[in-house]
Design a protein around this nucleic acid. Sequence first.
DNA 1: TATAAAACATACCAAATGGTCTGTGTCAAG
DNA 2: CTTGACACAGACCATTTGGTATGTTTTATA
Lengths: 203, 203
Amino acid sequence: MATKGEITKEKILAKAESLILQKGYAGMTLDELLEETGLTKGAFFHHFKGKAGLAKSVLERYASNDYELFKNYSDQADRLSDDPLERVLIFIKLFEEFLNGLENPFPGCIFSSYSYEVRNFEPEIGDYIKENLNAWLDLYENKLGALIKARPPALPVTARELSEMIGSIIEGSFVMTLAMKDKSWTQRQSAQYRHYIELLFRT
Amino acid sequence: MATKGEITKEKILAKAESLILQKGYAGMTLDELLEETGLTKGAFFHHFKGKAGLAKSVLERYASNDYELFKNYSDQADRLSDDPLERVLIFIKLFEEFLNGLENPFPGCIFSSYSYEVRNFEPEIGDYIKENLNAWLDLYENKLGALIKARPPALPVTARELSEMIGSIIEGSFVMTLAMKDKSWTQRQSAQYRHYIELLFRT
DNA sequence: TATAAAACATACCAAATGGTCTGTGTCAAG
DNA sequence: CTTGACACAGACCATTTGGTATGTTTTATA
C-alpha cells in the first residue's frame, strides 16, 4: 500500500521532471516546484536531501521507468515473432506506436537534459547516466547481434554500431521534436531506421 | 579593423557559449563568466543588454558560424564532384573529417541546449532556432532532392525525411558524445547514415 | 592636443534562491 | 489514552545573482 508520503513524493518527482525538461535543472527553482505542487518547504526537505537529492531521485525514477518501457517492448517483440529481423523491426515499431498514442508530444529525455548541463552535477550522476544509456542500447544490441548472426548484412556493420545508431536517432529526434515543435518527428525518423535495417538484412 | 571592444565582446561570447554548453543558460552565472574572462560587470553591461541579451548574441553567433561551416562544405562537395550521390556523400564526409580534426570533442550544440530549457527564453528565441535548423536541413535537402531526381531510391523516401534523418543523427550523436564521453561517436554514426544512403541509391 | 565617445572598473542594491528551524497535525502501536 | 514517529506547514536566514550608478581610463578624431 502506498503511504501518504509516497504519494506526495511521487507528485514532487513527476512535477520536477516536467519542469526540468522545460527549464533545465538549474532553471527549475524550488519555490516554483512547490508552488505548482501546492506544497511547502517543509514537505520538500522532509522527502529529499536538497535540490541535488531531488535531481538524483528524478534521474533514478526516469531511468527505471524508461528501462522498464523498452524492456517490455523488447520482450513483447520476442514473443510476437521467431524471426530475428522481425523481432528487431517489431521492437522499434512498438516504441513508435507508443509515441503515436501519446496525446502530448514526448517532453524530452532526462539523460539528454542532464548531459547538457553536466557541470551542475556530481560526476557520479554522469556515470549513472552512462550506465543506463548502455543498458538501453544493450537491448537493441542483443537483438541486432542475433540478426547479424542469422543473416549476413549487405554492408559490414556491427550490432553495436547499429544500436548506437537507433539511440542517436531517438535522442536527436527528441531534440528536434522540441526545437521544431513537430511531435511526429521521432516516429518518422524511427521509421527511416527500420528502412535501413531492412535494406541491410532483407536480402 | 577590429576595435578593442569587439575583441572583448567576442571573448565574452566564446566563454559564454562554452559555459552554457556545460551548465546550461540558467546554470551559467554572470559572476562566473566575468571571473573566467577576467572582466567586470561594467564591461559586460556595456556590451550586452543583460543576461538575456547575451543569450541572444551567443545564439546568433553560433547560428552564423554553424551555417557558414556547413554551407562551406556543401559548396565544396559540389565543386569536388558532378555526381549527385557523390555530392551527398562528400558533404557528409567533410563534416566527419572536421570532427576528426578537432583535438577536443565537439562541445555540443547551442540549439539543443536552448531547446532543453526553452521556457527560460522568450518565444522568439525558439522561433529563431527553428528557422536556423531549417536552413541547415535545407542544405541537405537540396542535395538529396537532386539525388532522388537523378536516381530512384530503393525505397520510397523523400528528400525531407532524409535530411531530417541526418539532422537527428548529428544532434543525437552530440548528446551521446556528451553522455558517453566518446568523442568518435558522431563520426561513427554519420558513417552509418552514409551507408544507408549508399544502400538506397547505389543500385 | 583638445574632446567626446567608447571601453572599461568598482561599489552597491533589491530580489531571488536554496536551505534551516520550529511548530503542528495525524495516525498507528503500546 | 499516551506516545512517538511520520508528514507536513510556515516563518526565517545567509548567500547568490542579475542589475545599476558612478567614476576612470583609453581611443579615435578633428
